[in-house]
Design a protein around this nucleic acid. Structure first.
Lengths: 187, 187, 187, 187
DNA sequence: CATGAATGAGGATTCATTCAT
DNA sequence: GATGAATGAATCCTCATTCAT
C-alpha cells in the first residue's frame, strides 16, 4: 500500500533495488527468473520482496509498467521538434532501440500484449494511445495514411520487437520498421 | 532411434497420434502443455511418448518442423500460377492465415525463431529460403526491392504473427502485412 | 482413481504403506504432520504420495474414513449377542477404547466433526446412524430414553474422546461414559 | 517484564486492546489467527504486541487464563443462593452457555486441556477445583455421587464443549449436560 | 513395444519473530 | 515505548523423466 505515507528511506531503497534486480532479470529475457534470485541480487531477503510486491506477477507488472511509462513520455517531446511523420518514424525506431538493450522492451512488450491484467491493460492503452496520437498528427498533416489504428501498429511493433534474438537484430529490425514506415506514408 | 527399421504398424500409429495431440496442444497456444496430458489425449501412456520422443523439447521440435515443412511447399506452387510479387503477397498472407488457426504458426514461429537447436536452425533456414526465393524472383522481375534478406522478412513476419491474441487479430495482421508489402514493392 | 482396474501389486503396497504411515502420524495427534515425513516413513518419494492422494487433505480424509468405517461395523454384531442397552453401552466403550490407542479416534473424530467436506459429512452420517440405531433399538425395548438424537450422542462422545490427553484418560473416559449412560437409561 | 513498575497509561491501554483483539480472534474459533492481524485489529503495530507478549503462545495463554479466571468466580456465588446440586447444574450450564458465545470457551477449554504449559496447568487446576468444590458440597449433602473427581468432570465438560460446531449446538449441549447431570445425581 | 507407477528436484509463498528507526 | 520493515525457515505441490512390470 504505497499510497498512504511516504516509504521509510530504507524501504524505498529496497524497493528500488528490487525493481532494478527484477528489471535486469526479466528484461534480460529470463521470463521465469526465480524470485529468490531476484531478492538475493537485490541484497534483501525473500520476505522483503514479498512485502513490497504481493506476488511474482505483481513484481513483473511493476517492472514492465515502469518501462512503458518512461517510453510513453517520448511522443510529446518528439512532436515539438519534428514534423509528424518524422516524429512517428523516430518513435518507432526508439521502440526498436529500446528493445535492443538487453532484450529490453522485447520481453516486456510481449508479456504486456499477451497477459491479461488490469495493469497491463492500462499499459497497452497507454502505448496504443501514444502511437495513435502520432498517427493522427501525421494523418491530419496529410503525410500518413489515416486508416491505421494505434493498436494495430502497436501489435506490429510489439511483435517485431518480441522476436529480437540474433546479434544483428537491431539493424534488421530498423530495416523492417523502415519498410513498414514506407508503407505507412502517403506518397 | 527411429532410423534403423521401419516402425511397426501400431508404433507408427502411436507416433502419429502423439504428433497430432501435441500439435493440437502446442499450436493452440498452450506453450507449456503437460506431456502427460498430450499422451493421454493421444490415447497412449507416458512411457510410449518417451519412446518416440526422447524429450519434451524433441516433441515440440517435431511438431513445429512438420508444420514448417508443409508451409514451405507453397512458394513453388504459387510461383507457377502468379506473378512473383503476387506470389510473395500470397505467401505472406498464407502465413498470417495459418497463424490464425488456433494460434497456429504464431507460437511455432516464435519458438522457432527464439530457441536454439539444430532442428530449429534448419526450420529457420528453410523458411528464410522460401521467402528469399520469392523476393529474388520479384526483384529480378523489377517488382520488388532487392535489398531485403529472406531472414529479415522472416523476422518481420514472425514478429507480426507472434503477438496474435485478440479476436480481430487476423484482419489486423492482414492490414499490417499489406502495409509491409507496400513498402516492399517498387513503385 | 482406484475405481477402474485393480491396482498393480506394488502400487497397492505403497498405498497401504502410505495409509499406515499417515494413520500413525495423524492418529498420533500430530494433526499437521508434514507430508514429506509421511512419505519418507512409508518408504516412498513425495511424488508417489501425491499420485495416490491428490492432496494433503485427501490423505487425511482417507485415513479417518477408514477408521470410521471399521468402527461402524461394530453395532450390528453387538446387537446380535446382547440386549439393546448393553449393546449401546458396549459401543460407547468401544469408541473410548479405540480413542485410547495412540490418540486413535480422538483426533479423527474431532477432525471429522469439525471439518467440512463431502467425505467427512458421510463419516458423520455413518457414525450418527450407528448410534441412532442403537438408541432406537434400546428405546423400542423400553430400556433407553427415546428423546436423544444419534447426532447429539455423537457430539458428546466425539467431544469426550477428543480431549484425551493424560495417562489415566481411558479410565476417566470410561467413568464419564458410564455416568452418561446412566443418564440415558430408563430406570 | 511486566512485573517491575506499573505500566504507563498508554501501555496499559495497548495491552488491553491486544488482549481484547486476541480474545475476539481466538475465542471466535480461529485457532491460528495471525499475530499481525491481531495487532492490526488492536490498532497497534506488531512490535508493540511483542513488547507485551513475548510469544504467540504467551498471548494465547493470557487470553485463556483470563477467561478461566472470570469463570471460576461463579461457583462461590452460586452456592450462596442455591442447593448444592442446583449450583452444580447451573455451573455446568454456565460453561455450556459461555462456550456457545462465538465458540467462546470451547476452543479455550480444548487448548487448555490439550497443551502443556505452566499457565495452562494452573488453569486446569483452577477449573477442576471449582468443579470439585461443587461436587463435594453436593456429595456431603447426599445429593450427588461422591466418586467423581473434579478433573473427570472437567474433562467431560471440556469434551462436550469442544466439538461445538453446528447451529443448534447449544441446545444439544444442554441436553447432553442434562443427561450427564442425571447420571451424577443420587436418586 | 507398451504401460503407468515412482522419482525428486524445484519454486512460490507465509508468518512468527527480530531489530533499526 | 512504539513503529513497521526485514528476516528466513518452513512446506505444499508440480511435472519432466526413469524404470520395473
Amino acid at each position: 500500500m504505497p499510497s498512504s505515507r511516504p516509504l521509510r528511506a530504507d524501504a524505498r531503497r529496497n524497493r528500488e533495488a528490487l525493481l532494478a534486480a527484477a528489471r535486469q532479470a526479466f528484461l534480460a529475457g529470463d521470463a521465469d527468473a526465480h524470485v529468490e534470485d531476484i531478492a538475493r541480487n537485490a541484497g534483501v531477503a525473500i520476505g522483503t520482496l514479498y512485502r513490497h510486491f504481493e506476488t511474482r506477477e505483481a513484481l513483473i507488472e511493476a517492472v514492465y509498467s515502469k518501462e512503458v511509462d518512461e517510453l510513453c513520455d517520448a511522443p510529446a517531446a518528439l512532436l515539438e521538434t519534428r514534423s509528424p511523420d518524422e516524429a512517428l518514424r523516430h518513435f518507432l525506431m526508439l521502440l526498436v532501440d529500446h528493445a535492443a538493450v538487453g532484450k529490453g522492451m522485447a520481453v516486456a512488450l510481449q508479456h504486456i500484449m499477451t497477459t491479461n491484467s488490469p495493469v497491463f491493460g492500462e499499459a497497452r492503452t497507454q502505448m496504443a494511445g501514444a502511437l495513435a496520437r502520432l498517427l493522427a498528427e501525421g494523418a491530419s498533416a496529410g503525410l500518413v495514411r489515416d486508416d491505421i489504428a494505434g493498436t494495430t501498429l502497436l501489435h506490429a511493433l510489439g511483435g517485431i520487437c518480441a522476436l529480437q534474438v540474433t546479434d544483428g537484430w537491431q539493424d534488421e529490425a530498423r530495416q523492417i520498421v523502415s519498410i513498414l514506415f514506407d508503407g505507412l506514408r502517403i506518397r
